[in-house]
Every structure is written in C-alpha cells, then in structure tokens.
C-alpha cells in the first residue's frame, strides 16, 4: 500500500551520495591520478607543470562545458573538433588578410554561432538525429578548413593582444586557463541557476513534457548547438593564439576527448542528467593522465590506450560501485 503516511527521514548523507555518486567517483579518480603521478614523478606536482596542464586543458574544458549542455539534451556534437580547426584556420586567414584581431574575434564567434545554428536547425526543426547532422558537420567543416588552407599552416603576425590570449599570464596564471575557468563557472551558473538551464534539462529529460508545459522545446534544442559552436570558436582561437598560426589539422580527435570528459564527469548520454562539476573533473582527469604519462616517459602512443581504458573503468566504477542506494546507520532502506 502506498498511502501518505509519515516516514522517518532517511540519512541526508545517503541522499547526498546517491545524488552525487558520479561526481564523487570522478573526484576520487582525479585525486588518485594526482597522487599516483605525484608519487611516480618529481615534476608532476610542481606549480609550473600544473599550470601547464590547465593551459593545455583550457580549449577542451571550454568546449566540454558546452558539450555538457548538448549531451544533457540527449544530443551529441561530433563536429566540435572540425569546428575548432575551421575557426582556427579562418581566424588566421582573416588576420593575414589584414583584419584587426579585435574585429576577428567577434567575427569568429558569430561564425561559430551561425554554423552551430545551422546544425541545430537540422536537428531540432527537421528531426534529423544529432549524431548524423554533426557527423556530416565533422566532415564538412574539416573539409572547408583543408580547402581554405590547402593543408598549409597559416602564420599569424603582429597581433600581440591576440597572442596574449593564448600565451599571456595574469598574476602568474595562464590566460587561457582563466578564460576556461570563467566559462566553466558560467556553465555551472547557467545550468543550475537559470531558466535556460532548467529548460535544457527538461528537454533532455522529457521533451514532450517540456513542450506540453509551454517551453520552447525546439528552440532550446537548437540553441545548445549554437552554444557549442561559440565554445568551439573560442577554443579554436585560443589554440591559434597559443600556436601563433592557424591550421586545418588542429584539434584532431578533439571531439572524442571532449565527449570522453563529459561522459566521465557523469553526464548521461541518455539526456536529462548533467554535472558541470563532473565535466570539469573529467576534463582535468584526462589532461592529468596525458601529462603524467609523458612525464613518466611512457610512449605518447600509450596515452590513448590508457585514456580509453580509464574511461571504461571509470564508467564501470560509476555503475557498479557508486550508482546504487547507500545506507548509513540503521540497516534498513533509507
């Protein structure tokens, strides 16, 4: 029988752990990785190296925050790597043609939003699966980048302000890392504290319910691809600013790293379930593993094997160890 009887309130700790199981597991994993590499190498835990890790992780983190929104709607954006390469190349071409970097910057953001918007239109309004649309995007955008650059790397000259974005420091802290942290905080606030975030979660959780309560479900669905387009544009420019050139070969395999980071952080591919904090931790875990293995003088080719294995193990840990009902104190169901 299921009447409204008074229940003893269960353990709040159990509720907390139950609801944040995935974030806690990735946090534990992250700490273990830090300790492991800290113990195995003398250089890993130096501030210089750690700052280097965040600098390198910055583009991934920025796009991963946007990808968290996309995956929360039960979608996927496979085109982010190609988008990064295209914007990366396009920015260099535009600047080489004489446009000032202060104008190039907003222009590229608009370009990213536009391309993301086109993909979002196909997905939300034409009902084509996101996987298909962005798979096509992956091919088309990379193709455009190659076509525009003819495969060459295009140098960027005389744009000190632009380079500062990729190489500069504020109080000893790398600028790209600051931008990434800013984006992550913004993502966190948007996801948990704004109506838009609530709409994204609702659309991913139950699109028909979202529509019935009057949310602009299709517009929300399309908008997350605009967000990921803009984020990819930011990442593309940060990479261009760090390397001082634009190349169609930038960000190879980038989309897989981003998706891995988001999934590792506990955002469900089935939609509705999101964790920005998890995404940050997931990104940093992947970055730390990549960096740590290099410091341990393990073949860089091995990194991919380890990263893949760790994703599998982490997800397995999530499902087997953390994602279940926890009991504390009294031995009865909480």
């Amino acid at each position: 029988m299921a009447t409204y009887t008074e229940r003893q309130a269960g353990s709040r700790l159990a509720d907390f752990i139950g609801e944040h199981a995935q974030v806690l597991s990735i946090a534990l994993f992250f700490v273990l990785c830090m300790l492991f590499f800290g113990a195995m190498t003398t250089t890993f835990l130096t501030s210089g190296n750690l700052l280097n890790v965040v600098r390198q992780a910055a583009p991934i983190l920025i796009v991963a925050v946007a990808m968290t929104l996309v995956i929360t709607t039960a979608g996927i954006d496979l085109s982010v790597g190609s988008m990064v390469a295209l914007i990366n190349a396009l920015a260099a071409i535009v600047m080489a043609s004489g446009l000032d970097w202060t104008l190039t910057l907003p222009l590229m953001l608009v370009a990213g939003a536009l391309i993301g918007g086109i993909q979002g239109w196909f997905i939300a309004y034409q009902g084509i699966p996101a996987f298909i649309v962005t798979l096509a995007g992956l091919s088309i955008l990379r193709g455009f980048a190659l076509y525009l650059t003819e495969g060459y790397s295009i140098p960027i000259r005389d744009a000190a302000g632009f380079f500062w974005l990729g190489r500069g420091e504020v109080l000893g802290f790398p600028v790209p890392a600051l931008i990434a942290i800013l984006v992550a905080v913004l993502g966190f606030v948007v996801m948990l504290r704004t109506q838009y975030g609530r709409q994204v979660i609702a659309v991913g959780s139950n699109m028909e319910a979202a529509r019935r309560v009057g949310m602009p479900a299709k517009r929300v669905l399309a908008s997350v691809y605009v967000v990921s387009g803009v984020a990819s544009a930011v990442a593309g420019m940060l990479i261009a600013a760090r390397l001082g050139s634009g190349s169609s070969n930038a960000a190879q395999g980038f989309e897989l790293q981003v998706i891995a980071a988001v999934v590792l952080g506990g955002t469900s591919l089935m939609g509705g379930k999101a964790s920005m904090l998890g995404t940050v931790l997931g990104t940093m875990t992947i970055a730390v593993i990549g960096n740590g293995l290099i410091l341990m003088h393990i073949s860089p080719f091995f990194t991919q094997i380890v990263t893949g294995t760790i994703i599998l193990v982490a997800i397995w840990m999530n499902t087997r160890l953390f994602d279940r009902q926890w009991r504390f104190g009294r031995r009865k169901s909480a």
Binding site: I201, S205, N206, A209, A210, R212, V213
Partner: peptide, 10 residues
C-alpha cells in the same frame, strides 16, 4: 496527462 508529463531528472 495520463503519462503525467513530468521530468524525471528535475
């Protein structure tokens, strides 16, 4: 609604 139209994750 018969299917309630709730968002499970909210």
């Amino acid at each position: 609604y018969q299917d309630l139209a709730l968002c499970d994750h909210v």
